[in-house]
Design a protein around this nucleic acid. Structure first.
Lengths: 221, 221
DNA sequence: CGCCGGATTGATCAGTTTCAAGGCATGTGG
DNA sequence: CCACATGCCTTGAAACTGATCAATCCGGCG
């Protein structure tokens, strides 16, 4: 039995509307989940990085698609049915699975306040802070996703995202390292970014504790 | 021990940031949950009607405020701690509580696609359809919430909501019964509204089954 | 060297917000 | 019982934010 699966940029791990057979964990690389609408509109629901669990949905069908956003992204997976069956007789496992739904809810709620109320400037500031928390190494952030993806996550046109970056660069809050293959940012003054946000902006996908992940992915299925 | 609690329009049931002591069920009337930002901005997260459960949060503090939107709204409640303790040794109760988090997640996800991608016209159409499903009596809808509330739920100015209603009224899809105390709408052609929406728009707060509610609110606490 | 794919920048456009005034049912006081 | 006040909704006009359209740039690669 294979224990990990590998995908290149743009490859689909599962599709919106398909039977929700597996629950996944990112081993390496990065994933986006997205929902397509008419007119080419697309909403990205979240980005997932190493260690993050995704694909657990309160429905028998996936309500998002999942695609790799960097080459050689690898994931583990467990069968949804088997997991839920085990959880029916195992309280601690049941609690672990519930905690993933809770994390998704926390994230979705932060995200919808961003989408409903934040200005373009605030959205981009919140995004950079979030990425700094999750994948930044003391202020150095290498964004794995394209500008289009950032825009679709923030509900903005990619040009608007670019312009906001330019503004932050002008004020010296941000330093850009332009390169097609390494979208690099250096966050000079994180506190200036934080000051631009409305208070109580908890947008982060709080990481799932390793213990939870281990409970769920303990056996290869 | 009192078994229900009553509130008038605008009265707060719990406040954002306060200790999350109780989980509630609407017995009669209607509730909104809202989150205040700076600049007077406000996002309404959901409206709850008779039978709906609200206030279960994945956190020890409430992340929304809850207020009654009609006079003499009554609610039941149970202690969060006691409920969670019981759920730790009761698999079916645990599953019931989890299903509420799942419902909230489904709603939040539909809502954020609306906020991130829908035009003003689509938002208002989706809202009317949702309200028709939840509190409409074959096409007759009496909205309990003010225009401001609708706007803050949809991420629109109240004037925009009013103008969209006017457009729907002009095309004969909607009939308005103007009155300060009875915000009445008659939905003439629901299928025309549905045709205005992007496909796969599942925005409804799916009702919690009576069985789940009964499991949770079986004893007064 | 020249192409390719994304990012940037500029100019214009459109949808929505904001500001402002008026309307219309309901409630209150003379 | 009428006149006026109240609170919300509606309507109009102007302003603005962000989107769209379009051109150019820039690094990496064939």
């Amino acid at each position: 039995m294979k224990s990990t699966y590998s995908y290149n940029t743009g490859e689909e791990i599962y599709g919106q509307g398909k039977a929700a057979t597996y629950i996944y964990q990112v081993v390496n690389g990065a994933i986006r989940i997205s929902s397509k609408l008419t007119n080419g509109r697309r909403q990205i629901g979240a980005f997932y990085f190493s260690g993050d669990i995704f694909g657990l949905e309160p429905s028998i069908r996936y309500r998002w698609s999942a695609e790799a956003i960097v080459d050689a992204t690898t994931v583990r997976r467990v069968k949804r049915k088997a997991l839920l069956r085990k959880a029916q007789s195992n309280l601690s496992l049941s609690r672990s699975v519930w905690s993933i739904t809770e994390r998704d809810l926390l994230h979705a709620e932060g995200h919808r306040i961003l989408l409903g109320q934040f200005t373009a400037t605030e959205r981009v500031a919140a995004f950079i802070l979030q990425m700094n928390n999750r994948i930044g190494v003391n202020g150095e952030i290498v964004l794995p996703m394209s500008g289009t993806d950032v825009g679709d996550y923030l509900g903005l046109a990619l040009e608007t995202v670019s312009r906001e970056h330019a503004k932050l660069s002008d004020t010296g809050i941000l330093l850009r390292t332009p390169s097609r293959w390494r979208r690099g940012l250096t966050l000079r003054r994180p506190e200036s970014l934080r000051a631009m946000l409305p208070p109580l902006s908890a947008l982060d996908l709080s990481p799932i504790s390793g213990k939870v992940a281990q409970t769920i992915f303990s056996s290869k299925t």
